[in-house]
Design a protein around this nucleic acid. Structure first.
Lengths: 217, 217
DNA sequence: TAGATTGTTAATCGATTAACAATC
DNA sequence: TAGATTGTTAATCGATTAACAATC
């Protein structure tokens, strides 16, 4: 049984810690203090220590943290010591771009299938994985354990398809469609809303442009 | 001069409000109360009212909010009534996928250039925009106002390229490389870290799988 | 007018930061 | 041992929620 619930804010920060530790490891840094890491990452040392202590004491007083050990431990917390199977639903530009990302495999995410409704794409192979027709999906999921489905299909089709694949037993959806999927609470949904990301840029740009104008520039 | 600083949390929520209001508008809904919107969006009505009142009173007591008006106003706050020019640096799979997104144009983001170092890509045209060599970038930026650069290049090259393009005067970077860009504070950086997004899935999946095992399943 | 719902103030909750005793 | 730095408690800060008077 897990103790106190870990806050979402902490979980969101873990991958970034992991990334920085990975870089330190590549540069053969053996140990690091929360203070030094905090300076590199632009966060407070206090926050780093608090965050890590949600999962146990990984450091040592007077010494700091062993980089390799901490890296491994955070990897375990993030579940990166496991293997996950991934399918991509929607073999358009974005789906194909994801399919070509070999980096995911380094983290334990293995591409097992690509599906689309467009018959012209059938049989095209991306990194050794053939695009299949959506009709085959149900059978495929029965025969193969699928952990994660990336949803790179049009907004209009996303909610219905999401429902269908969760009915098939898929428990995690990486959703790239600009819509909220309302699914049972035991289904993990991670959204990547690119348009919203762009809007955050334009929000800030707007003021920048306005102040530039009033500067007489 | 802007009044109290708007918190990042609020800004992050604005695009989602905008999306829901857009859908309501499409469905010819004329007015909506914070209560009803809160139920659809799974947030509190109080939060909606607080968020909106950061920017002024858009509603009317006893009535609620006029959907079209609120949609337009949030659009203005997000700077979506302006036009922004966008270039893509890195014409790999992801860069090309972004280039093919016509949806961005609907929001005022216009693709003006695509750049890469690979000579084999030179001259290939995506939606009427030819891929150019990186050598041309500086001259291009001098001749054309560039608001936003999407950075879809390898991690190793990202920090250096980011520095170069901000030196050229580009003020906003949409960063897809899995690395933090340390740039002057007047440069807007919006990160899209896909690997980190996947890790948040595996964090939760890990526990799901573990509990499934202990269930004897 | 009566009812509904906002705008806004006050209360609560949670997350971040500061401080420091414990200890390597 | 003395110095450094963690783990952890306490203080602060900010964000969310609740409540309600204002008002359409």
């Amino acid at each position: 049984m897990p103790g106190k619930e870990i806050s979402l804010a902490v979980i969101q920060r873990l991958p970034r810690y992991y990334r920085y530790l990975g870089e330190l490891l590549e540069n053969d840094v053996v140990r690091i203090s929360s203070k030094e890491l905090s300076e590199r990452m632009n966060v407070t040392a206090s926050q780093i220590r608090q965050d890590l202590n949600n999962f146990g004491g990984f450091g040592q007083q007077g010494y700091g943290y062993n980089v390799e050990y901490l890296y491994t431990e955070i990897g375990k917390i993030l579940g990166l010591d496991k293997r996950y199977s991934l399918i991509i639903i929607g073999a358009g530009n974005l789906g194909q771009a994801l399919a070509n990302y070999t980096d995911f495999e380094r983290r334990g995410f293995y591409l097992k299938g690509i599906f689309d409704v467009n018959p012209r794409l059938e049989g095209i192979s991306i990194r050794g994985v053939e695009i299949q027709m959506m009709d085959n999906l149900e059978e495929f999921v029965k025969k193969n354990k699928v952990h994660i489905a990336a949803l790179t299909i049009p907004k209009m089709k996303a909610p219905q398809t999401a429902k269908e694949i969760t009915d098939m037993g898929i428990k995690a959806i990486w959703n790239f469609a600009p819509v909220d999927l309302n699914l049972p609470s035991d289904v993990i949904v991670e959204n990547v809303h690119l348009a919203e990301s762009l809007m955050r840029i334009s929000y800030t740009l707007k003021d920048l442009e306005a102040s530039r104008e009033s500067d007489g520039n």
